[in-house]
Amino acid sequence: MSDNNVEKDDFTGVETTGHEWDGIKELNNPSPRWWLLVLLATIIWAVGYWIVYPAWPTLSGDGERGGTEGTFGWTQYDQLKESQAEIMARRAAYLDRFNTASFEEIKANEELYAFAVAGGASAFKDNCATCHGTGGSGSAGYPNLLDDDWLWGGDVDAIHETIRVGVRGEHDETRYSEMPAFGDMLGTKEISDISDYVLSFTSAGDYDGPGQELYEQQCAACHGMDGRGIRDFGAPNLADAIWFYGGTKGDIMSQIRRPKHGVMPAWETRLDESTIRQLAIYVHSLGGGEE
């Protein structure tokens, strides 16, 4: 459309753009002044932005990340560091006191206790939840940390030690126990008899059979005559309602024949002492903690 051929709207005298929809023609009115001014202002603002913030990639790859750095020298990494430093500074107020206090002192101090439980809860979800579950209730083969049944002890010190050195792990002082595979030494009948006797610890009625003698010969050294287990050996209590690898007769027979042994890594090499202490207090707070 040439300029001298522009159509003008009869009513307003304004040129049309030539666009027409259902007989309605678009007028070529200028943009409102305020709108234009805002646009110009944003353009000027953008130029300022280019100067003070990282904006343009450069061919030479100058600058920290291959672009202009901006006069403010701002980077997202610095911003992250700043906010982390802010959190660490806030935490430091408690951390110093926490690190020097004993478990007894922490348990008596509301503030430090809340700090430890909160820190422990967060570390637990990052490191422990994979096996023990986000709620700490474990699953088959992974101990439930909420109940009152502890293989290696349930006071804060014992829990702390277990976390530190792990179970059957690579640590020199690791908690270690190993039940022999009785499938190599005993026949199926004998294993079945022992299982019956073990089940009788938690069922009503007296046991009268060959299993008792076999148990006392083969098992009592670690699990105790009464089946209550011995923590020093990490031998589980067989006379309670909690079964680590299942509580049916089949489960028990299979465990006697070819025992499963779980492994927990030593966390001393992975977490700092403060975090391990927080974890110990958190796990102890879940409900099963012993005094």
Binding site: G133, T134, G135, S137, N144, L146, D147, D148, D149, T202, N237, D240, A241, I242, G287, G288
Partner: peptide, 18 residues
């Protein structure tokens, strides 16, 4: 009421809720 877990079985067979 705790949701994770809903309940915990204790060694004497009783149940605890948090």
């Amino acid at each position: 009421h705790d949701r994770n877990p809903l309940y915990v079985t204790l060694s004497d067979g009783t149940v605890r809720n948090g």
